[in-house]
Nucleic acid binder design. Structure first.
Length: 189
DNA sequence: GCAGTGATCATA
DNA sequence: ATGATCACTGCC
């Protein structure tokens, strides 16, 4: 199967659907000397102004502005004084929702992933497409629905009733070998 | 179990 | 200007 770059039509859907569908897709980061691909293994959905775990539940601010954009751009923010979090914005304009990418390839943990792939604010509010240097592909990797576990989200205990909602998706068991391998190609363009 | 670390935002 | 908070990690 020919790889398909996921475009805005993929992301402009309910955050829960996108979060689940992203499991098994390939996150691609372009560097000067080649591309790095990693299969997404863990995601979390943050859904709308009423979700107390969603940053946008505290209002539309400079930081959360990208979440209000139409699905298909990145929302990257800094936390705990040292970590960058990578989120794909979903749903439609003015409805703040996003999917946190918590694990891909050999990197398990959202801050490990962004550190390894050198992802920081340079991608915030940028389109999820090759043009920005960071995108997602469907490379035909099928993940059986029974291998996708649903659990509550991590570290959102402060969010009241929303803390218990099963908005986290994890591939189990994790893939072996190929995932996270660095693929060096000739420079594109 | 908890320190580290600093941007962000509400409060003043 | 100040202080609280925080979608984490790694060490104790």
């Amino acid at each position: 199967m020919k790889p398909r770059v996921l475009d805005a039509s993929f992301f402009a859907r309910p955050a829960l659907v996108v979060a689940k569908d992203l499991i098994g897709k390939s996150l691609v980061r372009r560097f000067d000397d080649g591309d790095v691909r990693a299969i997404i293994t863990e995601t979390e959905a943050y859904i709308g102004p009423h979700d107390l775990a969603c940053h946008a539940s505290k209002g539309r601010t400079a930081r959360t502005e990208p979440m209000f954009a139409p699905g298909g751009c990145w929302y990257v923010y800094f936390i705990y004084g040292m970590h960058w979090m990578l989120n794909a914005v979903t749903e439609g304009q003015d409805y703040p929702a996003a999917v946190l990418i918590r694990g891909a390839g050999q990197w398990i943990g959202p801050a490990k992933l962004t550190k390894a792939l050198e992802i920081s604010k340079q991608f915030n509010a940028q389109p999820i497409s090759p043009e920005s240097g960071l995108w997602i592909e469907d490379r035909g990797n099928k993940v059986s629905p029974r291998k996708i576990k649903r659990t509550p989200r991590i570290n959102v205990d402060y969010a009241g009733d929303w803390a218990a909602k099963p908005y986290r998706f994890v591939m189990s068991p994790l893939p072996e070998g190929e995932a996270g391998k660095r693929v060096v190609k000739s420079r594109v363009r």
